[in-house]
Design a binder for these strands. Structure first.
Lengths: 144, 144, 144, 144
DNA sequence: GTGGTCTAGACCACA
DNA sequence: GTGGTCTAGACCACA
């Protein structure tokens, strides 16, 4: 599966799930009409309590990203692709903005910060690339 | 004063204070031997409960960044400048790393992320620059 | 349970808890991997405010003696046994040193102090001995 | 003067003064009829706030150990020698008892504690002896 | 005025 | 149920 929880990054676990489902839809790892993993299955996989997964799924339902198929589970709603792409961008931009604001207010220079970002990005991109793709030059149509 | 609390960024208030004091020392806005704002004064300024400020100050005390002058307040310990500079860098790098990891796992391209970072940085740096520096490449017209 | 608070000995309640947990680990009354009593349970048992217990547990967390299992409680970290044994010895030595220094500065003779210590030790050891050991030189008839 | 304050032993400063005055009287460093150092003088010598000294002197007055000579200061009351000797012994015994109780409850063996006490006593007695006396075998009449 | 400790009680995320 | 955070307010030692 495509989820991974980081217990120590300060983001609530249910929130990490909401975000990662959103990202998976934006990414078409999870397509419109496709079902989410069951609460039970996902809770086992992530080794967390089912209530936490259920809480995340409620948020996605309330947000109209997924809907219930009675007795069968949750499916990705039509129209979610675009919404999730938009949300992905704003969620990520928002979080980066918050971290960057702190860095600038904390007295680091913009160039200094760019250097930190580049270093992290090079290091991380390598390890992510090995897992998720290869030809990393594409998909400009996804950018909002 | 140099502190500002963001209630909605997920970081605990006392933790934001710990970070901002650390940054202020790294920045020499707060110099070794200088006193911290009193618990009461800071709690009024930030419109938060004194206990929350006290909690932050306890952490700084436990970490040896500041020490108590009985009945007078807290002062920045000697040796804190270097330690705070180190901590500032690792605190900020850690938070950026976490946000960048999410962005990459969420399916954004490294170049795409760099673009988001640059846009935010130019916008934010402009507004910070008015206070802290002058010769900078950022675009002041983009200041929000 | 193994904790007891003395309201009148000048040591802060949360500090007494920190010390007693440390001692219990040193003593293997509390073993590595075992859980601490919950904040609520301990606060009820000691008839003190939960926040006071929480404050003590925060200190133990900050010190790396225990760690949180989310939603379940606090466990004794591996490696804590040796650390707690060292800390127990230095905590106790420190406190004794302070009392002995005062006694000497106050004009008592070393032999006189030894006599006071022995008398207390014999009396106290008797009452503790019933629980923790058997072959001991102390005078059980002196047990209060 | 014969006072020395230890800021880090957990005993309140005014309480340390009360105890040390009591000990000085027990020791006849301060004799019946003799005057205490003035609040001002003592606060300067100990580098503490006059209010703190005044607070200690109030306790001694309330306890009948010293009395006011209008406009001149405080003198040691007649009868204070015996009372201070008694109090010295019980104050010291009480504090030692508290430390020893903690040590025993903390799981140290009585012999182990005796060893710690002896080590501290030998070390401390040496450094105290150099200052305050020489032929350390005497004064049994002082023991209650 | 300063910080340190403690109580009381609320709400949150998580199990 | 668990701990973590925050508010509100009291009292203390010390300056």
């Amino acid at each position: 599966m495509f989820f991974s929880i980081d217990e120590s990054n300060g983001v609530a676990i249910y929130e990490q799930i909401v975000r990662q489902v959103t990202f998976a839809i934006a990414d078409e790892t999870l397509k419109v009409g496709q079902m989410l993993p069951s609460v039970r299955a996902l809770s086992i996989e992530l080794a967390i309590n089912p209530n936490t997964v259920a809480r995340a799924y409620q948020d996605l339902l309330a947000d109209g990203i997924v809907e219930t198929l009675r007795g069968r589970g949750l499916v990705v709603c039509s129209g979610s692709l675009k919404r999730c792409r938009d949300q992905r961008r704003s969620m990520i931009a928002e979080r980066l903005k918050s971290a960057l604001t702190e860095a600038l207010h904390g007295g680091l220079e913009a160039d200094d910060i760019r250097e930190i970002v580049d270093k992290q990005l090079n290091k991380l991109d390598g390890s992510v690339a090995r897992i998720s793709d290869a030809g990393n030059l594409s998909n400009p149509s996804e950018v909002k």
